[in-house]
Design a protein around this nucleic acid. Structure first.
Length: 569
RNA sequence: CGGGGCGUAGCGCAGCACGGUAGCGCGCUUGGUUCGGGACCAAGAGGUCGACAGUUCAAAUCUGUCCGCCCCGACCA
């Protein structure tokens, strides 16, 4: 492609609306253009990258035995009423009305449609298992699009769905898909971390996310440096520090005027945070929930929400707390009944805790479970933090930020059960089809690749997904001798099967070199009066600092060495 | 939805407290000189100042309403 004819324009300055690196660079380089909030055009450069990622995904999906199909974006609301997920998704779905006032929606995902297909086709265990996938635009009216391509409202996604007669079959496919995902991300040149994830309101059992490590990521990952554990913080568990165990002392009330927060209490009574009990109140649906946890820890709302199966969980207001008969700042489960008490096991790691006295300006010393109070549910509701122990090996955990590029999970019968997708097993007994589903945010993956691969001059694309393989820069092309050499080289490279962006514009060298750095194509070749005189071509890899001069005759072989081996297909 | 910021030429911005000719840099067009890391000279094109309403002799500037975009939070199969 000749740059002079290419539909691309670079910007010298960062667009004001972008402050995520990938967003800035993709806009500056002319890869994407925003139409409205969270809706982007993929311009030729961006589209080329997207199609390369898609091609890799297709190859790996096909190799893993999945079959491609295409399902409609436009879906009838009735289908979603079967699973009730039109309510679970709520405001996030884009609704449309047809001319007959029939309500339709723009698919945010395709479990319902694909399960309808399975229901129609699958009669017998002999029809199972199989896996279907598509690469298609999804629509979600996110409350807040952000970070350029990282969180948008219209986006290309690869979604796959597997159907099984039993859990063992699902396990096999799940592992195969996990491996396919590893292959995909590796071929895209992106190191990812496979982490245990929360499966969210959709239900199901196992769930894993594939994370690209990046500061701009929306998720926090807790992982063990030993490599035996990694999880999204929403799901992560850890070994909490053991508090000191003393012989139990008698409960004793102390005056604590105006002392409310754990911080204040610990300071006022001169005890460490981990020797206090924290009480937090949530509103779940139409009732309140009383959460108790050791004072140095925090409540993981995702874990808590999962205990209440999808209920609308939010922090209760002080007003609501008082109405339940509790005094904010001085509340504790001691001598209290009325609302459900959920406790974290950390309240047993230690003894003689300081806890609220359920009246203003007073606390108890030496509170101990179960001597002094009882709880309704004892379950892990704590946020895991770096520094705490790995549940597998005990080593201190670490944390990092990540971009969720892929997510796989075992749906089991969460969808198929509600939709009556059944089959007859070997014994002629009707059973519910078991499902798995597997997603990759393709556009987000593209952005993640930039978050991962860039420097202060621009993007640095991995070979396999770069928009072009070679960036040919011609300098002083107004000299006929130079342009004829450059034109010939361009033609030769193309006929050798390379994808070449040929900068034949009448721009100064500085502009061309800076654009080459910005666009981040893996190999830059320069032809100029200088190189022609020496009978060489300058070769510079984007990720290297130095360039080398290669004799014109040896160039093709040299390029093959630089690029060839990476093209795995 | 709560908090904050912003909307003036294709892009980045100034002008607005104090109302009176719409400006700068980049980019773009034409001609010339340049040519290995964002060249120079000269001449140009390009804007209903987000929208609507109000105040005023007069509004980019003051007032009101609405719309849009970005950031933090809430939320996020």
């Amino acid at each position: 492609m000749r740059f002079s004819q290419f539909f691309a324009r670079t910007l010298r300055e960062n667009p004001s609306e972008a402050d995520t690196v990938s967003h800035q660079l993709l806009v500056r380089g002319g890869f994407v253009h925003q139409l409205v909030a969270g809706v982007y055009s993929y311009l030729p450069l961006g589209w080329r990258v997207l199609r390369k990622i898609e091609a890799i995904i297709r190859e790996e999906m096909d190799a893993a035995g999945a079959q491609e199909l295409a399902m409609p974006v436009l879906q009838p609301v009735e289908l979603w009423e079967e699973t009730g997920r039109n309510l679970a998704f709520g405001e996030i779905v884009f609704n449309v009305k047809d001319r007959k006032e029939h309500m339709l929606l723009l698919g945010p995902t395709h479990e319902e449609v694909v399960t309808m297909l399975a229901r129609r086709w699958v009669k017998s265990y002999r029809d199972l298992p199989f896996t279907l996938y598509q690469i298609q635009t999804k629509f979600r009216d996110e409350p807040r699009p952000r970070g350029g391509l990282l969180r948008v409202r219209e986006f290309p996604m690869k979604d796959a769905y597997s159907f099984h007669a039993d859990g063992e079959s699902l396990d096999v496919t799940y592992r195969r898909m996990a491996q396919a995902y590893k292959n995909i991300f590796e071929r895209c040149g992106l190191p990812t971390l496979m982490v245990e994830a929360d499966s969210g309101a959709i239900g199901g059992k196992d769930s894993h996310e594939f994370m690209v490590q990046a500061e701009s990521g929306e998720d926090t990952i807790i992982y063990c440096p030993g490599g035996d554990y990694a999880a999204n913080v929403e799901k992560a568990d850890s070994l909490k520090e053991q508090g000191e165990t003393e012989s139990l002392l008698p409960l004793e009330a102390v005056a604590t005027p105006d002392v409310k927060s754990i911080e204040e209490v610990a300071k006022f009574l001169r005890v460490p945070h981990k020797k206090t009990l924290k009480a937090v109140f949530y509103s779940a649906g139409d009732s309140l929930v009383f959460a108790v946890i050791r004072g140095d820890l925090d409540v993981n709302e995702v874990k808590l929400r999962n205990l209440f199966k999808g209920a609308d969980l939010r922090l209760a207001t002080d007003e609501e707390t008082r109405q339940a008969g509790l005094e904010p700042g001085y509340a504790s489960p001691i001598g209290f009944k009325g609302i459900k008490i959920v406790a974290d096991p950390s309240i047993t790691l230690g003894s003689n805790f300081v806890a609220g006295a359920n009246k203003k300006d007073a606390h108890f010393r030496n509170a101990n479970y179960p001597r002094d109070f009882s709880v309704d549910v004892m379950a892990d509701i704590a946020i895991a933090k770096a520094g705490e122990g790995c549940g597998r090996c005990g080593k201190p955990l670490q944390s990092t930020r990540g971009i969720e590029a892929g997510h796989i999970f075992k749906l089991e019968t969460a969808i198929s059960g509600k939709m009556g997708a059944d089959f007859l097993d070997r014994e002629g007994v009707s059973r519910t089809i078991i499902m798995g589903c597997y997603g990759i945010g393709v556009g987000r993956l593209l952005a993640a690749a930039v978050e991962y691969g860039h420097d202060d001059r621009g993007m640095i694309w991995p070979e396999n997904i770069a928009p072009f393989q070679v960036h040919l820069v011609g300098l002083n092309l107004d000299q006929p001798q130079v342009s004829s050499v450059a034109d010939r080289l361009y033609a030769d490279l193309k006929s050798a099967g390379l994808e070449v962006l040929y900068d034949d514009r009448a721009e100064s060298p500085g502009v061309k070199f800076n654009d080459a750095d910005l666009l981040g194509i893996p190999v830059r070749l320069t032809v100029s009066p200088r190189t022609i005189k020496a009978g060489v071509v300058e070769v510079k890899r984007r990720r290297d600092k130095e360039s080398t001069m290669i004799a014109a005759e040896a160039l093709q072989g040299h390029l093959r060495e630089l690029l060839g081996k990476r093209n795995g297909s």
